[in-house]
Design a protein around this nucleic acid. Sequence first.
DNA 1: TAGCTCGTTGGACAA
DNA 2: TTTGTCCAACGAGCT
Length: 474
Amino acid sequence: MGGSKKPVILWIRRDLRLSDHPALRAACARGGPVIPLFILDDLADGLGAAPKWRLGLGIGHFAQVLADKGSRLILRRGKPLDVLRALIDETGADAVYWSRLYDPDSVARDTGIKTALKEDGLDARSFGGHLLFEPWSVETQAGEHYKVYTPFWNAVKTRDVDQPLAAPDAIPAPDAWPDSDALDDWGMGAAMDRGADIVRPHVQLGEGAAMVRLDHFIADIAAGYADSRNCPAEDGTSNLSENLALGEISPHRCWHAATRARHEGKRGAEIWQKELVWREFAYHLMHHTPCILTANWKPDWDAFPWNTDERLAPVKAWKQGRTGMPFVDAAMREMYVTGRMHNRGRMIVASYLTKHLMCHWKIGLDWFADCLIDWDPANNALGWQWSAGSGPDATPYFRVFNPQTQLDRFDPDRIYVRTWIAEGQADPPDTATDYFRAIPRHWPMRSDDAYPDPIVGPKEGRAAALDAYENRDF
DNA sequence: TAGCTCGTTGGACAA
DNA sequence: TTTGTCCAACGAGCT
């Protein structure tokens, strides 16, 4: 081959893994030194509190993984193009490789950088890896993008998915490493305040942990996933969302593990593949209609009289997990203590905020973006718009989750509720009391308070929401 | 092409 | 207690 001996900069963003990493493979294949680089730019700096903190943990861990391989993760802060050009000057690199992102801000940034670097005469290249299918590679027979999930699923389910690539045997190092910032100086966890110590034990950090979890899920959980995934008190989901969000595991690896499980007769594995494809669908929509992040995907909904005032008492109660609806409050507290929330909880709290409380889905979207360590721009936006009814699907307006009925159905023994709500329990578990250690001091709650009465009852809320939907003038 | 079918995750009520 | 039916109607996507 006789590849170039000049260094290549591997610009790391949301791809904190060594295996199944096409950009890394290509960088190593050049034959010259590889300089992994993470840049703290405005986009990373502007993340919500929990995702930014989790990103910091992921970077720190990945830096250690690289160090164990005889490589390093160089940390720099600033405008990415300036940082890259400076590093190119310092190292003599003649190439910059990275894994593609798909949110509009990242796309705008990356296309500008690619153009500029190419004008500089560099080999600037982006690679896949974050998704199973590039968003532009899936289209209807009419050449349009998909707007409904099931046809999207039918269009991709039998496609060949690339087998995951092995991690490189070695990552060629330069003779001398360029300077790096110290991660601690970046203060990635500054906004987490006192919650970080509570959330930390719940974090599943890094590629190794994600692989172990995937194996466990496939071996012991996938077969019963069709039912187990609905019960928030059970360990019945893949639990890989935070790792997928940061690229600590690749969707390809997940897909093929599930395919093998299907061949072993594990029925639930296909249902999980459908969930992976929901993630794909969310990215597909974000690519083709980036407005999904900020505006009603169905513009008709612009006329709907959402409450938009975050200072309203019901919004505070929702955020603080004291609406008086146990399922809603348990889920919100789970998010505050673990940085994640069971999917059924997400549907219920979203339905409750947007329908019972008639609050704009953006309030919920922003709060999730601040609290979730598995935050993902595409999934978060699609989930909220789907729940609110403004999004791309056929959710009828009368589909309002009743948090009481849902509780009876999916947490009949109240295990989930008791796990997260301390009030009223003589001897509450640590999970429930941890909540009161994690929340800001000014929140008006104590674990020995009485559990609050419902701020809006399940029936009244449903009736009010349906009334507003029926009387909507659009 | 015009028609046909279907739509992740639900609730209420009647039988 | 469980099961079936209705709750709008539109538009996406296929045939």
